[in-house]
Design a protein around this nucleic acid. Structure first.
Lengths: 326, 326
DNA sequence: GAGAAATGTGGAAACAGTTCCACATTTCTC
DNA sequence: GAGAAATGTGGAACTGTTTCCACATTTCTC
């Protein structure tokens, strides 16, 4: 493949001049520019971005580490992040961790090697010590010391779900989420915030018997048996807030399987936005997160890094998405 | 950040020796190796992959151009492609074209600049002239001259759907797909193959009144009105094969909206595999494509490229995925 | 029309590695 | 124990850019 030297030689100018033409920088006489441009076309020269990134110490590659792009919401987020980065001239490298910390570690190392310009981190694991904080990192949904953070207003979302279920006349409430640690844990995850928003609001109006049950991490893969086991002891519940739409769907299936009707007997609100092109029958009522706004927030932080501006955490509003299950 | 020279200096050896230690190549005395390794740890040296790719003329980055990772099947494919590439030590750059040829063009150009090692192409556009065929390219679901090709056995899938609907007693058939060109077009897309498999099989047993109707490209975004318009003139149809599960879902919704029952009055088979974690109510009966097998086929072609082995097209079997709609 | 400012150009260093080659030392083989 | 083979090491060229710097030429300004 032709390189800059070939162009310079053929055009009878110096390498520096060709570089100036390509980058539209410095002074170049019109005729010289035209001559060079002609040669570039002729020999089909394409600047080597790898060599550029070497001198510039910058490659405009952003990496996105996420558990699983198959998860609808993550997939949407990925889509919008990519679109937004594209607008700003960055490329996106995707790293599915499949929830495996080992894979996350390998990726985190690899990204160091590759001098990736920025990393977007979406993980449930405690990888604090592995993050190269000397480089731009943005974390979604999980706080790490010294790393800018973007998340939906999960606490507000929890409150919203509680209010809605109350409004609809529910009396006995349940929260379902992968919130292993409970209040004792030092780590306040965003899932915890959903639970807290939900519980605290209900507590604040005198409802103290909210049931909180644990749903396995990685909410998109659950067996019917598992869900059955979770729910079997709670027959009087009539208002459920689930950690995700996927969890909500699994729960609704189980409830209906047991002969109760949703939403007539039990109302269920999920989280993420209830979108699904494959939905047949009911649409899940949900607290929506906007992947587009989140993506924009993440990217604006990355852009700020590039411009050496100060970066700060961002909390994105959620919205109520009506459906057929509450 | 420390570089190889720093290591060499501190360890009192030559740069070449450090390189040999890192890459485990050539001869290095045990003591020397240990000394170097110690220094690497001490000053936290991480080899710069950009510089490496420059000399090696290879960066182990594969790009995947696809319309939209939000589409469930594409998202799954992306997931498995990434996982498979990871196993082989490659990184994946993702390029959502959003079906816009303009964005595809920009990406195709950019990937040339970045000397990406290989490109996986998933497009509906005629970008033949834009493909840099001097470099490894694999195309999924769309044939380009001189580009290795991977696809599901779409023709077989069409036959399979026809047989199944016949088996279930259907009498009047319809195919719904984004197959604008019709038989007259020179381009045989894979969608065409699904249609042909379906039609040809029915024709071969004497059924010649199959209705083929057009469904808009980008099957994941359609309005109810649009679908209504498509179907309103065909009240006697009782067996439908739709181009995708998303299309099937839209069609089923419309049919039920019009007071008919699925599958009692009309049976519908989709394409892709019927998977969806958000499904409530019916699950779509479908001809399944295996994203995992497809991903493996794509990656094995890329690996063959790297090893300078011959590459050849691969057709991946499909399977019948039972559901509630046929 | 002289001196200053603006414009135009190319050489060479720098970026951070790999690898060929030459040379030195050690180990083997008969 | 001599010659051959294997092992060990560093220098330097090379990958393809950008950019600083020095120098040349043109255009302004009074």
């Amino acid at each position: 493949m032709a390189n800059i030297k070939d162009v310079a030689l053929k055009a009878g100018v110096g390498i520096a001049t060709v570089s100036r033409v390509i980058n539209n920088s410095g002074y170049v006489k019109r005729e010289t520019r035209e001559k060079v441009e002609k040669v570039i076309k002729e020999i089909d020269y394409v600047p080597n971005e790898i060599a550029r990134s070497m001198t510039l110490q910058q490659n405009n590659i952003v990496a996105f580490i996420l558990p699983n792009s198959t998860h609808l919401f993550f997939g949407e987020l990925l889509y919008f992040v990519e679109a937004e980065l594209f607008e700003h001239g960055y490329k996106l490298m995707i790293c599915n961790s499949s929830e495996q910390i080992a894979k996350e570690i390998v990726y985190l190392e690899m990204l160091k090697n590759n001098r990736v310009d920025a990393v977007i981190l979406l993980t449930n694991n405690d990888v604090d010590s592995l993050i190269d904080k000397s480089r731009p990192v943005v974390s979604f949904d999980r706080r790490f010391e010294g790393v800018p953070f973007v998340a939906s207003d999960n606490y507000g979302g929890g409150e919203m779900a509680a209010k809605k279920l109350l409004e609809l006349g529910c009396k006995k409430f349940m929260f379902i989420g992968d919130d292993a640690q409970g209040d004792a844990s030092p780590v306040v995850t965003e899932v915890t915030n959903r639970r807290l928003g939900f519980n605290n609001y209900l507590n604040s109006i005198g409802i103290n018997d909210v049931i909180n049950i644990e749903y396995p991490l990685g909410d998109y893969i659950v067996s019917a048996e598992y869900v059955h086991g979770l729910l079997k002891n709670y027959s009087d519940i009539d208002g459920i807030f689930a950690i995700s739409d996927a969890a909500a769907a699994a729960v609704i299936r189980e409830i209906e399987h047991n002969g109760k009707r949703v939403p007539e007997d039990v109302k269920v609100i999920g989280f993420d936005g209830g979108r699904s092109f494959l939905n047949l029958g009911k649409k899940i009522t949900s607290i929506g997160q906007s992947p587009e706004l989140i993506a924009k927030a993440i990217c604006s932080i990355i852009v700020s890094y590039y411009n050496k501006e100060a970066v700060e955490d961002k909390i994105i509003p959620v919205f109520f998405e009506p459906g057929d299950t509450a």
